[in-house]
Structure formats: structure tokens, C-alpha cells
């Protein structure tokens, strides 16, 4: 029979090797796989995305901005640009860095993956809002086209990500900016600014001077071929139609989305024995998770009593319309309530 010490030493060596190779995330195999799959691709893709975003916002990108965004040194950023240029993805002319059409469509593909994945996280998983972006940043580089198309199909080809940004289509088309030019909006209906074109600079300066930026509400008074008059920020403003056409607005007649109050209590604050009345389910809770909560009868106005906490600390059981339902903290945090004061 083998000497136990030898056997054990051999075994531990084997286990150590296996652990070194295959330990989740950090194991050599996984890292090697990542490196091989991405081969610096992630960095390149992030660079293209950065360039695209600057282009979309009509800001000039530079080696400095690139290095800053990717958290690499200037030299590395410059190397990266050289590599991208070799592959025909960008064109560097002096200090000006521009995307080539190929580079642009590559960037759009990555953005599509990113936003689709954010949409997926928001609709189909319990991941909280703060983590959407980070997780999508990780996954955008390793989903292949088939996966992405499948994902898009599963979710019914959504047009916008949860932040309201448009998701590019398979063909690399990005939905046009939402809204209509202010110069063509309907008089009499309140509108909200969704986009301000920041070029040419002189025009942009005028718009800024009127205090217009995304989110500002306007009331249109009059549109004539000569001028556009409206109330904004409590004063009456006037713009030339040519300039007003650089501001995109949407009608804000729809139900005013109730502002979500950060300081509102959520179900998670209730201790066993305390109760509260549901105000709303946060908009961050979407898709199946949201429906499930409503199926169980958790709707605005419902009385909910916290009953008990699991000994392992997490799910808490609540009494909802006569039934006892256990919810994890992540979900309880998305149900906003008003505490019911009288104690039993």
C-alpha cells in the first residue's frame, strides 16, 4: 500500500495544481481563456466605444481623453491607437482622431451588446441598478453575435436600454434622437427637452444662454417663421427657428411619472411586527420580477406586515392579503412604503 505521506503530498500537489488552473474567475485557465478570447480586444473595443461616444456628443477625442477613460498610460493609449489604425478602425490626423466607417460600426456593435445586456439585467434578473453598467461592461466583450441576437429576440428587440439610451440595431443603425425639433413642436402642450445639439458652437452657446438642457420643461407660446417663443425656467425666451431646431423635445402630457423619492422608506426597513402601506414598486423593478410581486397582490395601497426574518439573515416573510410571502432584501428594497404608525 502506498505510504500515506507520499500519497497525500502527491494529491495535494495535484489539488493545488487543479485549483491554480481552475479556481473560479482567478484560475489560470479562466484567465488564459479570457486573455486568449479577448487578446487585448477588450481594450481596443473600449477605445472604439470611447471614440464613438465623443463623436456622438461631437466632442473632440484625444490621446489624453482616451488614456483617462481606459485608465492606461498615454503611451499605451497611443499604442492602442496605432493598432486600431493598422486595422483600419480609426484615422489619426495630427491631434484629431476619427472613427472610420468600419470602426464606427464596430463601436456600435459593442454599444448594442452593452445596452441589450443592461436591458436584460433590468428586466429579467434581480441585479440592482448600480450593477447594471459594471456587469454589462464585463460581458459586452465576450458575447458573440449569435448570443446577442438570441438575447435581443428573447426580449422582443427592445429599442431603449433602461437609461433611455437607444439600442443600435443589428445593422448598426442607432435610433434617431427621440423627440421633435423645438421649432416643429405643437403650441400649447408642455414639452421637455431631451437633446441639445452641441454643434455648431455659436448656436450651442445661444441655446445654453437660454438655460436649455435635457430635462428642462418648456411651454410653447408661439411659433412663427421668424421666431419661437416659449416659457422656460420661469422666463419668456425667444429663439430663431434655425436655432430652435437644434433642440429636441418630447411632449410631456403623459402621466407625469411620479418622482421616485430617494428618501422614501422601503419594505426592507420594516422589522418583524411592523407594517406599512405600499406607495409604489420602484421603476427599477421590471419584467417578470415586477409582475410576480403584483401577482402576489403587492400594489399601491396594499397593507403589508413584516412577520419574520430567516435565521440566515436574508429573506423576510411578509403578510400580504392574508398570505405569507418571503422576499429577498433586493426585492424588498424596491417596494416603497409608508410606515403605518400605530403599533400593535
Amino acid at each position: 500500500m502506498a505510504d500515506p505521506v507520499t500519497a497525500l503530498v502527491v494529491a495535494f500537489a495535484l489539488v493545488a495544481i487543479v485549483a491554480f488552473l481552475f479556481w473560479p474567475h482567478r484560475g489560470y485557465y479562466w484567465r488564459a481563456q479570457r486573455v486568449r478570447r479577448l487578446g487585448g480586444r477588450a481594450l481596443l473595443e473600449d477605445a472604439l466605444k470611447h471614440l464613438y461616444n465623443f463623436e456622438y456628443r461631437s466632442q473632440p477625442a484625444s490621446v489624453e481623453s482616451l488614456g483617462g477613460a481606459l485608465e492606461v498610460s498615454q503611451n499605451e493609449a497611443a499604442d492602442l491607437l496605432v493598432r486600431a489604425e493598422e486595422r483600419g478602425l480609426v484615422k489619426v490626423e495630427g491631434a484629431v482622431i476619427r472613427l472610420t466607417p468600419i470602426g464606427r460600426s464596430y463601436a456600435l456593435r459593442i454599444i448594442r451588446v452593452h445596452r441589450l445586456y443592461e436591458h436584460y439585467l433590468s428586466e429579467e434578473t434581480g441585479v440592482t441598478e448600480e450593477d447594471w453598467h459594471r456587469l454589462a461592461e464585463e460581458r459586452e466583450h465576450d458575447l458573440d453575435d449569435a448570443d446577442v441576437d438570441q438575447l435581443a429576440f428573447e426580449m422582443g428587440n427592445p429599442a431603449y436600454d433602461p437609461h433611455g439610451d437607444p439600442i443600435p440595431t443589428v445593422d448598426g443603425e442607432i435610433a434617431p434622437q427621440r423627440g421633435v425639433p423645438l421649432s416643429e413642436a405643437e403650441v400649447g402642450t408642455p414639452v421637455t427637452v431631451v437633446h441639445v445639439e452641441d454643434e455648431p458652437e455659436a448656436v450651442y452657446a445661444q441655446i445654453v444662454a437660454e438655460g436649455l438642457q435635457p430635462g428642462v420643461r418648456l411651454d410653447l407660446i408661439e411659433i412663427t417663421p421668424e421666431r419661437v417663443r416659449f416659457w422656460a425656467n420661469g422666463t419668456e425666451c425667444t429663439l430663431a427657428p434655425m436655432i430652435a431646431s437644434n433642440v429636441a423635445v418630447v411632449s410631456s402630457t403623459g402621466p407625469v411619472e411620479d418622482e421616485e423619492d430617494e428618501f422614501q422608506d422601503t419594505l426592507a426597513v420594516l422589522r418583524p411586527g411592523e407594517s406599512g402601506e405600499v406607495v409604489r414598486i420602484s421603476r427599477r423593478c421590471r419584467g417578470l420580477a415586477r409582475r410576480r410581486l403584483m401577482d402576489l397582490g403587492i400594489l399601491p395601497g396594499t397593507e403589508i406586515l413584516a412577520e419574520m426574518i430567516s435565521p440566515s439573515g436574508d429573506p423576510t416573510a411578509y403578510r400580504v392579503r392574508g398570505a405569507t410571502v418571503a422576499l429577498r432584501k433586493e426585492q424588498a428594497l424596491q417596494i416603497q412604503i409608508n410606515r403605518t404608525l400605530e403599533a400593535h
Binding site: 481552475f22 473560479p24 474567475h25 479562466w30 439585467l121 429579467e124 434578473t125 434581480g126 441585479v127 456587469l135 417578470l288 420580477a289 410576480r292 410581486l293 402576489l296 429573506p315 416573510a317 398570505a323 405569507t324 410571502v325 418571503a326 422576499l327 429577498r328 433586493e330 426585492q331
Partner: peptide
């Protein structure tokens, strides 16, 4: 844990259980 960190990587889904 090992599976959900390697070959079955993914995000946790929401959970509700009636007692």
C-alpha cells in the same frame, strides 16, 4: 457556488416564495 462562478455564470433572478 463553483458552478455559478464557472460554467454556469450568470445573474441571480428574483425570488419570492409563499409560505
Amino acid at each position: 457556488w463553483a458552478l455559478s462562478n464557472t460554467i454556469l455564470k450568470g445573474e441571480a433572478s428574483a425570488f419570492s416564495l409563499e409560505l
